[in-house]
Design a binder for these strands. Structure first.
Lengths: 129, 129
DNA sequence: CATTGACCTTCCCATGATGGGAGACTTTAT
DNA sequence: ATAAAGTCTCCCATCATGGGAAGGTCAATG
């Protein structure tokens, strides 16, 4: 099948499919008639794998490792779990950063009248020494 | 004072100071002897403002609006609060996205033995139709 | 006064993942 | 046969930041 069909079936845009091939995440697709890429079901399956992994926040780098493990039938699940655990720790760190921002901002906005007066604790905080 | 000193006092790198000037976030600094930028205390103060706003996750775009309001002594605090509230909502949405990923991944990793066996619910999930 | 080292300048490049678009070519449908 | 839709490769843009090169400027020391 051609790239548009593969995109539709996998949920990955044609643009991204070409990009994944370019950076070596996917093996170069065969060419039908030496010009259009030609995909089979296995390749669409890999694209779906990638899309789902992206939706879980894995980086391309991590996905490359997950794909390699997926292709290796004898892999130890330990290695997969390690990648996932590290990623979860990373996500939690990001959440914690963002939550810290929310906490500070909510404190400030609670103190801000938000009316026509110019006094604003939010600006006062940003401008404080 | 020269850019290195302004960077040290504000906590904003010289690279970033030039960038903020280039994109118009800051008024072009005066030049001493027509070559080196020359900063005064007020400009350092603005840089600190920017650094703190960045630490709260505001985009450059938002900071430009906050700076304009800060400079306007008669601004209504309502406008500041609107920006902050929208930003908080944005942060919360991102947290919620990330938390969803964590939840899914923790469910999967709880089910993964993480030993030498190849069976892995994490990969199985990513590869599922 | 001259050299040296620290600082400054501008310009270009890279990041990560994605989208947009141009210009040329191929396939498919009418 | 012609028109429409799909595909190809390139290049550019995002957002905020850092790295580095090549060259100019300043301050202190010999």
């Amino acid at each position: 099948m051609k790239i548009g069909e593969a995109a539709k079936r996998s949920g990955v845009s044609a643009k991204m499919i070409r990009y994944y091939e370019e950076i070596g995440l996917l093996a170069p697709a065969g060419r039908a008639g030496n010009s259009y890429r030609d995909f089979d079901a296995r390749e669409v399956h890999e694209l779906v794998f990638i899309r789902r992994a992206r939706a879980l926040g894995f980086s391309i780098e991590e996905i490359a490792r997950l794909l390699a493990l997926w292709r290796d039938r004898g892999r130890p699940s330990r290695e997969v779990k390690e990648i996932a655990d590290r990623h979860v720790a990373d996500l939690k760190a990001r959440i914690s950063d963002l939550q810290g921002m929310v906490d500070q901002l909510e404190h400030l906005t609670r103190c801000c009248t938000g009316d026509d007066r110019p006094d604003c604790p939010i600006l006062a905080d940003l401008a404080s020494p």
